[in-house]
């Protein structure tokens, strides 16, 4: 009796198991696998990813699958192994991905990415004055200083580059090292609390906070805004035309560049990315980032 019941259960489980796997035909058509970690409120896109994958699928006429690769080193590695076809990378991570996958194609960036900035902020009671130029960064010597996340272009790479140009190494900060708050928002919170005297972050996230007043900014001031550099961009695998048909890579570019606020779903997607629209981008724009990345040991 017992044994019979168990056998029945096993059969049931096995049949559900086989039923739950898709049949071969559905697998035949190649799927475009995409990933993205935006700089502002990335959780929103992660929840509403279907908006993006449906829109791309509608325009490109292929199945599109969003894969939540949330860690940048993982996204770069997944791009190297070809597990992701199209990824929204930061300036540094995009360069890292191209270093590991030569001939990958830079597709597009946001209107704001062509001239991106970081801001250095300081706690008002730290006694750090507003700086006139990058040489003023020397006042940060001996202060407690935090970057954002380790792979961030605006929260780490470029700030570290400008510090280095001013003659400051990370070992010159109080405690002999800089902190890594983990995100732009955490940098604001920690500098505002006074636990860190100063920090550097993405200028757009700063501006958004000024507007939304979500974090209390009364204790914090901007001490310096960096010169412009290029940041986020869409990067595609080199071989997409072979998999999806001639001209597919260009079709992706045209689709992204065509996103406009006239369409409701496209407007929402642009909002999730913090963009007015996407504009064309070239690999050569990122040469400086690559050089700086190599200099600081972040690109090999």
């Amino acid at each position: 009796m017992m044994a019979k019941r168990k056998k029945g259960l096993l059969l049931l489980v096995l049949s559900v198991f086989t039923l739950s796997f898709p049949n071969k035909e559905a697998l035949a058509q190649p799927t475009l696998k995409i990933g993205a970690i935006p700089d502002q409120n990335p959780e929103h896109l992660n929840r509403l990813y279907k908006l993006l994958s449906n829109e791309l699928s509608k325009e490109l006429k292929v199945p599109v699958r969003y894969i939540p690769v949330i860690s940048y080193p993982a996204a770069v590695s997944a791009f190297r192994t070809g597990s992701l076809d199209l990824v929204w990378f930061g300036g540094l991570t995009g360069v890292q991905a191209r270093a590991q996958k030569p001939n990958a194609k830079v597709i597009a960036q946001r209107d704001v990415d062509a001239r991106f900035h970081s801001v250095f902020i300081a706690n008002k009671s730290s006694g750090i004055p507003v700086l006139r130029n990058k040489h003023g960064l020397t006042t940060l010597k001996g202060k407690r200083f935090t970057f954002g996340s380790a792979s961030s272009t605006s929260g780490r790479l470029m700030p570290q580059h400008f510090l280095q140009q001013a003659g400051i190494e990370t070992t010159d900060f109080k405690g002999g090292q800089a902190g890594f708050s983990g995100s732009h928002y955490a940098t604001i919170a920690l500098v505002s609390s006074g636990s860190y005297d100063a920090g550097a972050l993405n200028a757009i996230v700063w501006a958004e906070n000024l507007k939304s007043k979500r974090l209390n900014l009364s204790n914090v001031k901007v001490i310096w805004k960096t010169p412009a550099y290029v940041d986020y961009h869409w990067l595609a695998q080199p071989n997409l035309d072979k998999t999806f048909g001639q001209g597919f890579t260009n079709k992706i570019r045209d689709t992204l560049l065509g996103f406009s606020n006239k369409s409701k779903s496209q407007a929402k997607i642009l909002e999730l990315f913090g963009a007015k629209n996407f504009i064309p981008a070239k690999a050569s724009q990122y040469n400086d980032i690559e050089r700086i990345g190599r200099q600081l040991g972040k690109v090999r």
């Binding site: 990335p42 983990g182 995100s183 919170a189």
Partner: peptide, 11 residues
């Protein structure tokens, strides 16, 4: 992923 992303943006 929810936890990590909401921690990043302090939501």
């Amino acid at each position: 992923v929810e936890l990590q992303l909401t921690l990043q943006s302090l939501e």
